[in-house]
Design a protein around this nucleic acid. Structure first.
Lengths: 335, 335
DNA sequence: CTGAAAGCGCTTACAG
DNA sequence: CTGAAAGCGCTTACAG
């Protein structure tokens, strides 16, 4: 206390152990054979002096930071925290650090953060890109590998970990159609996201496959936030005599439910309802919500594994590849 | 594409601009006066060459990483993501990066992460410590400032951003008592957390102030997870004829509600209920939940501001100070 | 007002 | 099997 302790350097460790700094480094990194005797001396000296390597020096010299960047559009969205949990697990157990950034679904924030990352700060990047044009990334790419998660960027290649959006929505809508519904409203998230396009495609395909007429006025596009779920539900219910509603985004699902609750609309009696993404609360509301559930932690793990593999192999980041994990339709009591 | 682009270094920028690297550095960091003419030349050269500084080199030399560490016990808990959002805002707008780590409420994980941080990786740390003995930190402290959030560590000093736990719980319990309840169950989180102790103290003080007999069998200690909320609710309801229940932790609130829903227990008719922490879903369940709401984003912002101030002032981290923000009791329909 | 140069603490080719 | 030493790319005291 009060005493300012000088940080111990590798030089001191080497001196105490009676070896060169090279040997200390090789012991720490296990990058060259070191005799058992010297190894023990080094380990003991490190222990005794309380040595911790300086990561800035290591990064500068080795050109590796053992840090990966992550950009998500909304840290308060439980879908993304599920993903983060999965990423964290893999990153941690491989000795990497995770730098988190929240783009807030804003392209300018996202670009700014990428610029900050472009300074040998990270060895690789995982991101869920905003809906804007990302072709600018193609140029920057190659500095470090990038893996996209949840959504693909518009205008650029790379590996991505996605979900079978179109198929699972097709399944849910088909369920509604088979239950006799023909007027089925759909509330989507942000217009230009690949997730939005794919989920909408699943909806449209179900209509077409079952010979039903598509009514574009039953398709409402929101901004992926709570409030637009509320507003669009009001809109679609006021103007249309739909018998079923599908909400293709999680926060909008909550907003939508808020409106339905306020108006005391009985589910599934007056309206069959299917939401998106699952959290523990979806089983404590009445009725228990039928939802499409994505394997969030698994998505995160997969993305992190791919990225670390890329980093280790030092492959060129010049091809596209999609990994599609399986989202599932959970039939509960709201439809 | 295919072409591997050599990273541009400060040396090239200096050469292009016709100045020394020192001048380039001073322009970038605004740490010394540079004539307008040279400044423009430098900025233009940087732009032209697409220069981004190497952060490892900068960190090594300046002994600042412009990075702060954050350790939370559960990334999937919306209370902590609210905090993270606040921290993120402040950190971003001050040009710092945020390294996130999930301790998973596990002391060993936490210690391991702190060790990784102890390598000149971070300039400061914000953490919500686990319930274990943290006196080991006192020794390490001084390397970088630490701000605790939500909870105080057991056995060590420092600044902390907390909430008026005891007072706000006192207010909620008092409300129940005034409404005529005398048998009020309480479900708490992990035993040795300061939050648990303080919330329990508020409960006990209300009983004592209103001359009610404390029944320790109505106090159940959980592990802050969903499942223990479910189990303890079952336990307390099976053995006791309580008329009101207070759950002092957010995930346990959901677990508790799950049990109540299963048993079709009518709120507030058969049981008055108050939960902890608020999220959008608490207003879509029936009845709308009465809860204690913490100012999560504000807590995060406050902690980040304190930490950055500390980092800039290079003060010694050798005093304790508590900031208590105000949590509020939201009376809705469940009690 | 600006530059030459030392040096932060590592890793790693080179040499033996 | 191991060491001496160069050098990663910056920042910053020193000097003028």
């Amino acid at each position: 206390m009060g005493l300012i302790v000088m940080k111990v350097r590798m030089k001191e460790v080497a001196k105490t152990a009676g070896v060169s700094t090279a040997t200390v480094s090789y012991v720490i990194n296990k990058t060259r054979f070191v005799s058992e005797e010297k190894k023990q001396k080094v380990l003991q000296a490190m222990e005794q002096l309380g040595y911790t390597p300086n990561s800035a020096a290591r990064s500068l010299r080795s050109k590796k930071s053992y840090t990966i960047g992550l950009i998500v559009p909304d840290i308060n969205n439980f879908f993304f925290t599920g993903i983060i949990e999965g990423i964290e697990q893999v990153v941690q157990s491989n000795g990497y650090q995770l730098i988190l950034s929240n783009s807030n679904e804003n392209f300018a924030n996202e670009k700014e953060q990428i610029n900050r990352f472009n300074s040998q700060l990270i060895d690789g990047l995982i991101m869920a890109p905003t809906a804007d044009d990302h072709s600018f990334l193609c140029g920057t790419l190659g500095e470090y590998p990038v893996v996209y998660i949840d959504r693909k960027p518009n205008g650029c290649f790379g590996e991505s970990v996605l979900v079978n959006n179109s198929e699972v929505v097709y399944e849910a809508i088909t369920y509604l159609i088979k239950a006799g519904h023909e007027k089925i409203g759909i509330l989507t998230g942000i217009k230009d996201l690949t997730t939005t396009r794919e989920r909408l495609a699943g909806y449209q395909k179900a209509f077409s496959d079952y010979g039903l007429q598509l009514d574009n006025s039953l398709i409402k596009t929101g901004d992926s936030r709570y409030k637009s779920g509320y507003e669009l539900t009001k809109e679609v219910l006021n103007n249309k005599d739909i018998t079923a509603l599908f909400v293709a985004n999680n926060l909008m699902t909550i907003g939508s439910m808020e409106f339905l609750r306020e108006k005391k609309i009985n589910l599934p009696g007056e309206l069959a309802f299917i939401g998106f993404d699952d959290y523990k609360w979806s089983s404590i509301i009445i009725p228990r919500l039928s939802v499409i559930k994505q394997p969030t932690a698994e998505m995160g793990r997969k993305a992190a594994e791919i990225l670390l593999k890329r980093i280790k192999e030092e492959e060129q980041n010049n091809y596209s590849k999609e990994y599609r994990l399986t989202a599932k339709f959970y039939l509960r009591d709201s439809c």
